[in-house]
Amino acid sequence: MTIERPGTGGQPEAVERPEMVGASGRRLGGEAVSVEGLYKSFGDLEVLKGIDLAVAEHEVVCLIGASGSGKSTLLRCVNLLEPVDAGRVVVEGADITARGVKIDIIRRRIGIVFQAYNLFPHMSVIDNVMLAPRKVLKLSKSEAKSQALTLLQRFGLEEKADQYPDRLSGGQQQRVAIVRALAMKPDLLLLDEITSALDPELVAEVLDVIRELAEAGMTMIIATHEMGFARDIADRVCFLDAGRLLEEGPPDEIFGHPREARTRQFLDRVIQAGRMGGGSSGG
């Protein structure tokens, strides 16, 4: 299987490492990002208490855990939306938490999609998608436009190109937010509970997009409450509890035979709440 990253225009991957295969059956590459001994506090509240996590190219890592366990904060630290207190974030071999690193350049390569979409309400859909390619990558208007239209088309949004975000359903808005992140051709995509704000019937259309991206080889770290989806798509599942990465492993192991009592407790509660099956739509 030739792995193509979304949006890279079909450039072949530089390195193929057939010896590494994820739980999903996807081939994994070298290390894309690693988080080492990460600490983060907000005032007196210590949210991350020494997180270590390495993610390979093409790998899909799902972060699960209760609200407040630090999933979102971890994602926001990976692209430095939150400054870290201690520890390192290394992206493709370079320590991005070091002093003097040009944060804006790093962020071009790391896309993030937020729970609340955060589309720019004063811009049409296509302008939302074109803004960063034009201003950051300095593409011409026509280049940026044709690239944006191709992406919108790919995700069934071309008819919405000239609409403003508040005319779109939540699912459509979230898909536009994903397209907006993809327009920067990121090497790594961070998804921060992107279905949590959606009506249940709109969750599937967004998860299908993520599934497609995973199949195309996009490296992703996904914070999610959709356990069925995580089980389905992840190469590796990480359970966060009170700011620590308590347990990690292939989805079958974490969901099937969790080692830690806290993990079992959490999953039991999730099953009781009926969220286990949610999200494994069609695929």
Binding site: N79, D104, R107, I110, N118, L131, A132, V136
Partner: peptide, 13 residues
């Protein structure tokens, strides 16, 4: 602030 976060996350200065 999330608007600024979204813009910065896309690489805008």
């Amino acid at each position: 602030p999330s608007q600024n976060a979204a813009a910065r996350s896309l690489g805008l200065s």
